[in-house]
């Protein structure tokens, strides 16, 4: 079950991209708290601590903000274009007896039997959308696939979820398959570049032929 991470946050009076850039340069992270029909509060967080907790899959935080403690759930994490740096974190206020909808990673463990027969395990769904109490949020859902034979299919309704946790996705969705990968047929000799051209939408073939002939004449 998810542990509550303790973080000290400060209110963020300066808003806007320039102020946030200055914050990030000084090792802090901008964020925001909202929810429960209370005020939206922009906050500043210690980046190193928050990133450390997030990388360990923390969902629930207890923020100490100006002598006030708030239990919050991570709602959204924004990364930079390369996915290296955390840029901003959204937190939603929650109470501990509340039911929430959350996305949790799904890990398949074990080597399927079908892999010995030439199959390859393909995981199609990597994250599950779950509904559970805040205190029951699992860090990860693990499923043993060692019994999967060649051409076996694993559906969502076959997954074993912890008690008090329900999946919001359709039970018939395919999570993973063990299938033989067909070897690609060697492609035909590559045509000369520019030789084949795609069809032009809304143009008759005669027009294209006429246009193709005109430049040829000009070249001469």
């Amino acid at each position: 079950m998810a542990q509550t991470a303790q973080i000290t946050a400060k209110a963020r009076p300066e808003l806007g991209s320039r102020a946030n850039k200055r914050l990030r340069d000084s090792g802090m992270l901008p964020g925001v708290i909202y929810g429960h029909k209370e005020a939206v509060v922009p906050i500043t967080l210690p980046k190193k601590e928050v990133v450390n907790h997030l990388s360990h899959g923390a969902h629930l935080f207890e923020l100490a903000l100006d002598a006030k403690r708030e239990t919050v759930l991570v709602k959204e994490v924004q990364y930079d274009h390369l996915g290296l740096e955390v840029m901003h974190v959204d937190f939603a206020r929650v109470s501990l007896d509340e039911e929430v909808e959350i996305t949790v990673p799904l890990e398949l463990k074990g080597e399927p039997k079908g892999e010995k027969d030439g199959g390859v395990l393909q995981q199609i769904i990597n994250e599950l959308e779950l509904k559970c109490k805040v205190t029951d949020i699992p860090d990860v859902i693990r499923h043993d696939v060692s019994e999967m034979a060649l051409d076996d299919v694993l559906h969502i309704n076959q997954l074993k979820l912890p008690s008090g946790v329900t999946c919001l996705q359709d039970g018939d969705l395919i999570v993973a398959t063990v299938k033989e990968i067909q070897e690609e047929v060697a492609a035909a000799a590559p045509a000369e570049e520019g030789a084949a051209e795609p069809e032009v939408i809304g143009r008759k073939p005669e027009d294209e032929a006429a246009e193709g002939a005109a430049p040829e004449a000009e070249k001469k």
Binding site: L54, G57, A58, H59, V74, K75, E76, V77, Y79, G83, D90, I102, T103, P105, N126, E127
Partner: peptide, 9 residues
């Protein structure tokens, strides 16, 4: 080289 990143939200 990059890994898949799991969502925490």
């Amino acid at each position: 080289f990059v890994h898949r990143r799991h969502a925490v939200a």
